[in-house]
Design a protein around this nucleic acid. Sequence first.
DNA 1: TATTGTTATACTCTATAACTATA
DNA 2: TATAGTTATAGAGTATAACAATA
Lengths: 153, 153
Amino acid sequence: MSNTPSKKNNTNIGPLNDLVTYHLRRAQVTSFNNFAQAMSEVQITPGQFGVLSLISSNQGLSQSAVARALGVERSTMVAVIDGLEKRDLVIRQPSPTDRRSNALVLSEKGQKLIGDGTDMAIGSDKKTVAALNDEEAIQLLTLLRKINHHSGI
Amino acid sequence: MSNTPSKKNNTNIGPLNDLVTYHLRRAQVTSFNNFAQAMSEVQITPGQFGVLSLISSNQGLSQSAVARALGVERSTMVAVIDGLEKRDLVIRQPSPTDRRSNALVLSEKGQKLIGDGTDMAIGSDKKTVAALNDEEAIQLLTLLRKINHHSGI
DNA sequence: TATTGTTATACTCTATAACTATA
DNA sequence: TATAGTTATAGAGTATAACAATA
């Protein structure tokens, strides 16, 4: 489940070093690995965590609404919810208002997991930004939020 | 090749909004899409661009060295270099010092592409950080560099 | 007509493990 | 023994296109 190839490198990376895209991708891989490690007990990926967290904050949400909020296709959500339902973390309830749609809720197990999991995620975040002081970490979050908000997120 | 599912969303994302991991991932997807769009003429992915750029700055680099510098497995590099070689962007030359190893160099076509491509990449970067002013964009880059440097990058 | 959930399918990126030829 | 390149294989994660049921 871990993910970081070995060995140091001392190669001159040239213009890459000035690209946000490049550093964003590297940092994201790091944060993903930290997350996977922090969640190794509960075996939850960042994507699954996002879904659980979202449902937790919005009980009864539809699959399509989750997909839209996370920026993925609704077809993609099917397998994700399947997996979470199979592990008894999420329940597909019939929507009371729309017979096409599922109202997603967390099971008790799901609620417990997201309770503990949120702390683990915060811990993993701290590890990711370990090179930054508190002010810088907040700055980073603020800047990323601006970028994301600007692109409709 | 584009990648962003449709529709606005106005769902409360709860604790996710305080996670660097979450915003890092979303921002990275945005930057990836901007990159793909900027490079649509030349059909170069961020990963391929990284390889070309790295070879450009370090002519004669081995595949393993590129893999290490970019944080991927050397087995992963094989197909990437295959693709770039098939498009006549990169040439595998026999290393003069180590008969196991390939010395990677850019073809003329590859040099031309990375010349233009670097500007396109910078343009795509500008789009990614369009929500930030110049000072903030530099801050972001600095913070991301700190994170990456801390994890050995 | 448009939307929800679903299935089938495919593509990209990446890893692990084992092999060979060197070093 | 260790490293470079390679192959085979597999697993995430995600997209597109089409379909039935419902709005």
